[in-house]
Design a protein around this nucleic acid. Structure first.
Lengths: 191, 191
DNA sequence: CTTTTTCCAATACGACTGCAATGTATAGCT
DNA sequence: AGCTATACATTGCAGTCGTATTGGAAAAAG
């Protein structure tokens, strides 16, 4: 057996091709053959690593989520809670080309998951963790008489919304950052 | 010519079938034949009213947008600016079953439009109008030293994000409303 | 060595897709 | 009555889809 292949690595290679396709042609343009072509391999190989299409989709979704999470955690060295929260949230916004790509993928997957409740479960725990983290930081900053849980929900919703509208180019990126900062001012009692 | 038929009406009938499909099976499950079956007509008739699939999609998207806008305008009788803004924004959130349906459709279309820049144009003017309206209301309320344009961007982003996360059932509806109210408190100088 | 197991390529299959072409019935106009 | 334009139905086509199957190369195991 040519066992010298790293399964994880191959699957990520394919999932990368998948995300590239999803970002440029939408999830509708994602098929086994297209993924194989984009990755420069045969459709048989794709089938070898993902027995079904749903399995491939699920893996790719998880991979994107992991990468976003990893980037956020890498940002976890900041002085004040406010800067920490800001840094993490900025990682979510599609401010450069690679994050725009990931944003498109995330949006496509969200619409995909909206129909497949089994996938929503994975999403839920991820965002719940992020919410708890933000609420904790708000408390650490000594938020002045706000409901920190509610504020965390609102803050994450704001960032998600900003990201969505950035993807469809509703306004400039600097406006999005300004809106986020304005909101942080309100919450952290800025100026 | 066979009896006078209202084109608009027929197209809306088909677009309704399309939105029903999109809400339950996702946009991926939308095909000419499926739409025809859902509407109880032949595929030939669908082709008669929409020469191409993209034409059908675009019409359906516009229809959904129009309905949301109409519902929002119907809400336009309220005492204070804050109540007015709140009422309009609540129309966007998927708080009942029909709005959940529309939300799914909107999300699916958003992911669809993310790849087709031609469609983004239509979205843009709609949301820009809403943003201007909200900014105007904020000024009318005598917002205390905030940048009203920025606040409008943030408010709409918040509502969009809340809506998205409600669709994937990240938290309860009352939490979404509470988060919205908390944000309105911050902006309008609550308490 | 042989055997077995893994990796992958190729191909076939049935279902489905968007779309075009064609057929037919009806209703208004002249 | 005759013609034409509209409204739909039916059918066919070329292509893609996800999946199953088959087969062969290559390396580990015996």
């Amino acid at each position: 057996m040519p066992s010298k292949v790293d399964h994880r690595e191959r699957r990520e290679l394919l999932a990368d091709a998948l995300t590239r396709l999803a970002a440029t042609h939408g999830l509708a343009g994602v098929s086994l053959r297209q993924v194989a072509a984009e990755a420069g391999v045969s459709t048989g190989m794709v089938q070898h690593y993902f027995r079904t299409k749903d399995e491939m989709m699920t893996f790719a979704l998880g991979m994107v989520a992991d990468r976003i999470r990893a980037r956020s955690e890498a940002e976890a060295a900041a002085a004040t809670p406010r800067e920490l929260v800001r840094g993490v949230l900025l990682q979510i916004l599609p401010l450069d080309e690679t994050r725009r790509l990931e944003g498109h993928v995330g949006l496509a997957f969200l619409a995909y998951a909206a129909v497949k409740p089994a996938i929503q479960e994975g999403l839920r725990e991820g965002s719940a963790g992020m919410r708890g983290f933000i609420a904790g930081q708000l408390r650490a900053a000594g938020a002045h008489g706000i409901d920190t849980d509610l504020a965390a929900i609102g803050l994450m919703a704001l960032v998600d919304g900003l990201g969505m509208q950035l993807l469809s180019r509703q306004f400039a990126e600097k406006d999005a950052i300004a809106a986020l900062d304005a909101h942080l001012d309100l919450i952290f009692g800025g100026s």
